[in-house]
């Protein structure tokens, strides 16, 4: 069994204890999406606002759940803020590739993931992968909601 330290990295626990971009945004103009992970009872609510230039101008995270689900959502909010929609989708793809649920191997350039790379230990605990990807699926749903 892999070491728990691989799962609960210091930077992950920091995002859990001090979540970034916590709160809500008025809808509209923002869009809201809510995701559930029935295994842990995790709940992630993503508020996302996209400006006229197709850039994510603001994002907020609400909800509750296990450390991995909440830290992953906080880290995601930091990484996508200010990015264009296609950049955000690229990040999602790279993150899910790292989690080995998309593509085959490691991301071509893990450095691009920044702090998100700290979550790669989660893939050694397959039961928890859904905790880490819940926020990305929820963001994706928010961005495609009419």
């Amino acid at each position: 069994m892999p070491a728990l330290e691989d799962l609960y990295r210091e930077i992950v626990l920091d995002h859990y204890r001090n979540p970034r971009n916590r709160g809500e945004l008025p809808c509209p103009p923002a869009k809201r999406a809510k995701g559930f992970n029935p295994l842990c009872g995790d709940e992630v609510i993503v508020f996302v606002e996209v400006d006229e230039g197709g850039r994510i101008s603001d994002v907020r995270i609400d909800g509750q759940g296990c450390s991995i689900s909440q830290a992953a959502a906080s880290m995601m909010s930091v990484s996508v803020k200010g990015k264009t929609l296609s950049e955000a989708r690229e990040l999602e793809r790279a993150f899910k590739t790292m989690m080995v649920i998309e593509g085959g191997g490691s991301p071509s350039s893990p450095a691009d993931l920044g702090d998100l790379a700290a979550l790669q230990g989660v893939k050694k605990f397959p039961v928890r992968i859904k905790c880490a990807t819940l926020c990305w699926n929820t963001l994706s749903e928010g961005l495609t909601t009419e």
Binding site: M1, L4, L39, G65, C66, F125
Partner: peptide, 12 residues
Amino acid sequence: IHAHDISQVLDG
């Protein structure tokens, strides 16, 4: 501490 984090550490 969330229950799933508790059970994860206990599993270890």
